[in-house]
């Protein structure tokens, strides 16, 4: 995944889409948009933070029962049928990605009807952890994750590193074959070479020095396409919700 900080205007549509599609209770967000300001005189910017699906994931290292695991395609998932709720993974993840089912979750009937798989993480169970899963169920259908599909700015790119390609753009029709209908058919959707995008735009990974080898790259917020947070007209819907209760 590549997140273009120059394109993100903090509208929070990605968060809403993720929360809706995963039936998230109001006390948590898998994807969270932070308002960052790195230094005193630096400009603030919006910083969407999914799970980074690290290649050397500290969360997976410490799980005593292998309930958090890394698949061979690189995706890090949680199996809530095995998790014992020790929350070591939450303490170990340096990016504060993980959320916990502190009480008995309310599972909507749609969630129950689909049945459980770590690939979508619901119906959820009390006393287990969960987190952003990169929507592998969508990837199976050749579709973008919900956040990337919902971003009106096309700020979230997603793809398979093995293919050296990432795709972005709003999912206009939400049609089943949208991605493969050729130019024009999927709105502004575009696919570019990952290596070239990172080279041209100075892609970096967050807190690289921790050695977790995240699989999410950020493109620095240069030549922004939106007003920075704090500028007039900017605070239009930052996804600030209450602390989880």
């Amino acid at each position: 995944m590549v997140i273009d900080l120059a394109a993100c205007d903090g509208c929070g549509k990605c968060v809403t889409a993720c929360s809706d599609k995963h039936f998230l209770p109001p006390d948590r967000e898998w994807l969270r948009v932070f308002k960052m300001k790195d230094s005193e005189n630096g400009a603030p910017y919006w910083f969407p933070r999914p799970c980074f699906h690290c290649d050397d994931p500290p969360c997976t290292r410490v799980c005593p029962v292998g309930a958090t695991f890394k698949r061979q395609d690189g995706i890090v998932l949680v199996d809530n049928e095995r998790c014992i709720g020790c929350r070591f993974c939450m303490a170990a993840c340096p990016y504060s990605v993980r959320t916990f089912n502190w009480g008995h979750p309310d599972n909507p009937s749609d969630a129950v009807a689909r049945g459980y798989s770590p690939e979508w993480g619901y119906p959820r169970r009390v006393g287990t952890t969960e987190k952003c899963d990169f929507c592998p169920d969508m990837a199976r259908l050749g579709k973008l994750p919900h956040c990337a599909a919902a971003c009106p700015m096309g700020a979230i790119w997603f793809g398979d590193e093995n293919e050296d390609a990432v795709t972005s753009g709003p999912d206009k029709e939400h049609s089943a074959t949208g991605a493969n209908e050729g130019p024009g058919a999927a709105g502004d959707r575009q696919t570019v070479r990952l290596s070239q995008l990172l080279r041209d735009r100075g892609g970096y990974r967050y807190l690289e020095d921790l050695g977790t080898k995240p699989r999410v790259y950020y493109l620095p917020p240069v030549n922004r396409r939106y007003p920075a947070p704090g500028e007039p007209d900017a605070e239009k819907g930052a996804p600030v919700r209450g602390e989880q209760r």
Binding site: V65, G66, R82, I84, R87, F88, G127
Partner: peptide
Amino acid sequence: IDMGRPDRVMNVFIYGRFQSPIL
């Protein structure tokens, strides 16, 4: 007591991973 799922404590013996300091 701190565990979210004390009922699954046996998982530690069934699936225990020795890379975890908890083990």
